[in-house]
Design a binder for these strands. Structure first.
Length: 761
DNA sequence: GAGCACTGC
């Protein structure tokens, strides 16, 4: 193939390491455009990955208001796009041909659009419009440094929300429930409460002042905290205004609050409710709250140009790496943010980027590659906020943490492969899993918006415009539809809401999820056979943990091991990353972990870790323990211990005896027995396996209790503890019959027998 | 022999 030879003449040296490919970076003398030449000798192919962005600037841009006009890519627009795309690529090739008279150039550029391996970005000429309003034009956007110099008054006046102050207060005055649409940065979170405080007509009534001291005029709290407030004050009488911020995030607790607050607003006409959300779904909120009016506040985001790939990318990790390099070499200064799904991907991506930069050496400007994800140690997290040195470019490779939770200054370019990890819950089996799924259009737009915080930006989506339109969901499935509802159901029951099936959910959870939660609470003795809360259930609801854990804590009193069980409950309720296992120190980390192993099972190992822990960063570092998880476990434990008085449980230690702990921990509900090749859950006769990270992985005891089921590569029980089957008759005589616990595999699965006793033993 | 997104009552 003659092209191979020709391109070989311009070949510099092999600079990128792509399997089966030789890749060179070449700069065109004529246009100054950089491009990669990839050749695959074995397949006799030459391809060019070039940097198409500058050429596409010739294409007329067409704004599309995503917020107001639904994007139409099928039909007319689809054809329009196709046409335009054709023109764009041809005009580029044709121009080259005219200028250089080089026939093979034309062919090469044709090839660009045909090769599957190429990252072929297509500007659909869709721009996410900036959100700066007419009213906002007088106040310039200010940098953080400039803001610091200003007085508080000036800062407040400069926020996008400021011109709307009077109109907003009037609207709040007029309506009981108001939906406020405004994105982050509009100032709604900090300013609205202040406006309310400054405005006597509206807000804080005499009644309110009667109820609280001056110090508690304004409370910022999480949605979960507000939910707990209902337990002590079911009508929220001491509050006169409730603002539900970030409503679009649709967290489990926010969704429950919607139903509860809508309900109390009916008999508390003096209560004002503000539902603040990003520019999405506000119509749904309005509809849910009996057509409450929507008040719109523009933000201060700059426009973001959106690019899609022409064809789907098979390997999005590789596509990310190439895209970063493309941007780095062709685009004007500005940092890059890449969204990946998890730690493993992020590490791989960072390594690939660093490796390629190393090979490119001084051919390209310095590229700082920085990972960020929630479990990354804090000192490494902090690095992403360091300012980029002059002449260099920063690329931050992040999980969804950068989508909402944190904001990085200086991001101009976003690369979005369109995936995220999402928890899902199978209510039939009670099994949780974390699955890589295509993210929603809302999520993709949120990601794109991250490119427009400091200046006009660009977002490169590693999927097609067609996929965006047809394969992605409009919004993310709300958490309430993909999680275990055990403690939410318990909480609602303790608020006196008995008919959960007809509770006013904005999006109801699957029926099976409610049924399983009710069944579990019944089995634990928190509900009686009429579905009413028992005395035990009332005490369980006081504890902010999973019902199985609260049951276990209450039962620990009788077995004189509450001291230990509190610790175990706290350790189980933090996330699963107590043990730190960095890739480069796997052996050390595993050894450190082995040192904590004690007989009996994982619960006892966790107890041992907590007991031995010095709780200092130093200690955690030396023992390969995640400091943050330990601190969290300690906080949870302190909180639980503080609640023991209230539920009348004495805190006592079993000393060295592990038997009472094992009788109580994990509790009887999740039992599995050894069965050929694996285990069978007693409840559903489901085949499950001990997780390889478990301390009991090698031992395979006949009977065990698991804390949770997760599906990854297999159905795994995570956190297991060894028990004797006879104990089950002792701790849960209402739930198990001795026949069912004989070690014969031909036995039928146990059925719930008789009524649940209110208290065990 | 696996692999853990994100919060936070």
């Amino acid at each position: 193939m003659s092209d191979t030879d020709k391109s070989a003449e311009t070949r510099d040296e092999v600079i990128l390491n792509v399997p089966n490919y030789e890749v060179n970076l070449v700069k065109s003398e004529e246009s100054g455009i950089f491009y990669f030449i990839c050749s695959n000798p074995s397949r006799n192919k030459v391809s060019i990955i070039y940097f198409p962005f500058p050429t596409y600037q010739e294409v007329p841009q067409r704004d599309l208001e995503l917020e107001e006009t639904p994007m139409e890519l099928g039909g007319e627009q689809g054809r329009w796009e196709e046409e335009r795309l054709k023109t764009a690529s041809l005009s580029f090739g044709a121009k080259k041909e005219r200028e250089q008279g080089m026939r093979h150039e034309q062919e090469k550029y044709q090839l660009i659009l045909e090769e599957d391996e190429m990252i072929n970005f297509v500007s659909t000429a869709i721009t996410m419009k900036g959100t700066r309003s007419e009213k906002d034009q007088e106040a310039p956007a200010l940098s953080q440094a400039e803001l610091k110099k200003q007085s508080m008054q000036e800062v407040r006046r400069s926020l996008p929300i400021f011109p709307y102050r009077e109109d907003l207060l009037a609207a709040i005055h007029e309506h009981q429930i108001l939906v406020i649409e405004g994105e982050t940065g509009s100032g709604k979170t900090t300013q609205i409460p202040q406006y309310l405080l400054e405005d006597v007509s509206v807000g804080y009534s005499i009644r309110f002042e009667d109820c609280t001291s001056e110090r508690t005029v304004l409370k910022y709290m999480t949605d979960g905290m507000l939910l707990r407030e209902f337990l002590t004050e079911p009508d929220l009488a001491s509050y006169s205004v409730i603002i539900i911020d970030e409503a679009h995030e649709r967290t489990l607790h926010t969704d429950i609050l919607f139903g509860l607050i809508k309900d109390i607003a009916r008999f508390r006409p003096d209560l004002k409710v503000l539902v603040a959300s990003a520019t999405l779904d506000t119509e749904r909120f309005s509809c849910f709250f009996d057509d409450a009016p929507v008040f719109r506040i523009p933000g201060r985001r700059f426009p973001v140009d959106i690019f899609y790939t022409k064809a789907p990318e098979a390997d999005y990790l590789e596509a990310c790496v190439v895209s970063v390099l493309q941007i780095h070499v062709t685009q004007s200064p500005g940092d890059i943010l890449v969204f990946l799904t998890g730690q493993e991907e992020i590490e791989a991506c960072c390594e690939l980027l660093q490796e390629r930069c190393r090979r490119l050496g001084s051919k390209i400007a310095e590229l700082l590659v920085l990972p960020i994800y929630a479990n990354l140690p804090s000192d490494m997290q902090a690095k992403i906020f360091n300012p980029t040195p002059p002449g260099a470019r920063k690329v931050v490779v992040a999980t969804n943490i950068a989508e909402t939770s944190l904001t990085i200054d200086g991001i101009i370019y976003v690369i979005d492969p369109g995936f995220c990890k999402q928890k899902s819950y199978n209510a039939r089996t009670g099994m949780e899993s974390l699955i890589v799924t295509p993210c929603s259009r809302a999520s993709a737009n949120q990601r794109a918006g991250r490119a427009g915080r400091v200046a006009a930006g660009k977002c490169f989506r590693l999927y097609t415009a067609w996929a965006f339109k047809h394969e992605m969901e409009e919004t993310t499935v709300p958490e309430i539809q993909r999680t275990n509802l055990g403690n939410v159901v318990l909480l609602l029951k303790s608020l006196g809401i008995n008919d959960l099936i007809h509770f006013d959910f904005m999006d109801p959870p699957p029926h099976e999820t409610l049924v399983l939660a009710l069944e579990q609470l019944y089995a634990l003795g928190a509900l009686n056979h009429l579905g009413e809360l028992t005395k035990l259930g009332r005490r369980m609801a006081e504890l902010p943990v999973d019902p199985m854990l609260s049951k276990m804590i209450l039962a620990s009193e009788q077995y004189k091991c509450s001291e230990e069980v509190l610790t175990i409950a706290a350790m189980l309720s933090v996330n699963n990353s107590i043990f730190y296992r960095p890739k480069d120190k796997v052996v050390h980390a595993d050894n450190a972990r082995m040192n904590f192993v004690v007989p009996g099972g994982d619960h006892l190992v966790l107890l041992n870790v907590y007991t031995q822990s010095g709780h200092s960063t130093q200690w955690c570092y030396e023992n390969f323990i995640q400091f943050r998880s330990m601190r969290r476990a300690r906080d949870v434990r302190d909180q639980l211990e503080g609640l023991m008085d209230r539920i009348e449980v004495e805190v006592v230690s079993s000393q060295e005896d592990s038997v009472p702990i094992r009788k109580v921990t994990g509790y009887f509900y999740h039992t599995a027995r050894l069965s050929k090749g694996g285990y069978k859950t007693v409840k559903h006769q489901q085949t499950v396996y001990v997780h390889p990270n478990s301390s009991l992985f090698e031992e395979q005891p006949r009977w065990l209790i698991y804390h949770e089921l997760v599906f990854t590569t297999k159905e795994f029980m995570r956190q297991v503890i060894e028990i004797e089957s006879s104990w089950l008759l002792e701790v849960a005589p209402h739930y198990y019959k001795s026949k069912e616990l004989e070690d014969s595999s031909s036995k039928k699965m146990p059925r719930k027998q008789g009524k649940t006793k209110e208290e065990l033993g």
